[in-house]
Design a binder for these strands. Structure first.
Lengths: 197, 197
DNA sequence: GCCCTTTCCGAACGATCGTGCTTTTCTTAG
DNA sequence: CTAAGAAAAGCACGATCGTTCGGAAAGGGC
């Protein structure tokens, strides 16, 4: 790996952190440059445009998400346990300083057509599908009811995460986590098959 | 009401619409001015700073929320029916073009201390408290279980709204509404007292 | 150690940002 | 109708935005 790739990765690391706080549009070449101790044009050279920078920030964030949330969950046993580690990892992920970059980016770009939105849409779809898939294998394992709607479950679960994100970060309510876990348990319980006693 | 107050209100109407799409920081004096067919300085004179403009945009949005969501709900019968109209009105409110301005503003400012965040925090708290209060009167009416946690319910309900907001606007999934209503029904059902047969 | 390539800097560009002034135009009360 | 006051325009400012370009500095293969 050459020198260029190296600094580019360092810049992206920093950029993701910044984007968590100020959003993808709040990202500024100048600010990013002085944080990386580079000249504006020096930094700019690594990305041919701001839009390209934003796209790479998204891709970088996605890599982090996969290694911190998705992969650890997929390594564990299928079904309900996998769903639990997915949920817990996701809680950690979005408790990082600045919150979840995808939550910020999605609300920022949900009304701005373009390549950035397209890329975000793809990633969000993948996350949604991941929940659906994990839940489906849970059904196959017999952990969840066969007539449960995976899409419904995915939207519900994402709601739990979003509400916790909001309650914790905006309202500053420390109880957000325990409520989120309670809501998660309620979802799981409702999805479990009726015990055939 | 003088001429000034009149145009100021017109500008704020427009500004709220714009803020739904581009956020409070995306608001620009220049853009706003030409949409209002005013000069930059002519518009600027109505608000002594951009920050003051943002604050007034928030207040304006709150007024709209109260007249379109809160008041209609509080006019109806207490308890579960009131909760239902609150929910339905809220769905309409955030289905407006650009989505809910508070969702956009909250994710934008949850990490930016200052008067704007303070004002947003106050409004968000009020909304949260409104859900809590409506649910409490539902308990008093005997519609909901006495041992149910109103704060838990509020966070859960807000999660349903946020997930629907996200699923509809970002993912563009038309089913978001029917899932949101199903989730709402599940919440209500779980909160109802055990039938004493 | 040389040479070509990559990486980075310095300076500058047009545009737009928020914000002050001064002056002109419009409202409105007496 | 007129004079006082409010509303809007016009213009300019410093700052910062994203972007371009030519040259200096550093990197890496031989």
């Amino acid at each position: 790996m050459g020198k260029g790739e190296q600094t580019r990765a360092a810049v992206l690391d920093q950029a993701v952190q910044v984007a968590r706080r100020v959003g993808l549009n709040g990202l500024t070449i100048g600010t990013l440059a002085e944080q990386a101790e580079l000249s504006k044009s020096g930094l700019f050279g690594h990305f041919r445009s701001k839009e390209a920078l934003q796209l790479q920030v998204i891709e970088h964030a996605r890599s982090r998400f996969e290694e911190q949330v998705a992969r650890p969950a997929l390594r564990g046993p299928r079904g309900e346990p996998r769903l639990r580690t997915l949920f817990e990892r996701w809680l950690e992920w979005s408790a990082a300083p600045g919150g979840c970059p995808f939550v910020a980016a999605a609300t920022e770009f949900d009304d701005r057509p373009g390549v950035v939105r397209d890329r975000l849409l793809q990633d969000e779809r993948d996350m949604f599908d991941m929940i659906v898939t994990v839940f489906r294998t849970g059904v196959a394992e017999g952990h969840f009811r066969a007539d449960a709607d995976p899409d419904q479950f995915a939207q519900d679960l994402y709601g739990v995460l979003l509400a916790r994100h909001h309650t914790l970060r905006m309202l500053g309510d420390e109880q957000a986590d325990v409520r989120a876990r309670r809501a998660f348990e309620a979802l799981i319980t409702a999805a479990r098959p009726i015990p055939s006693d």
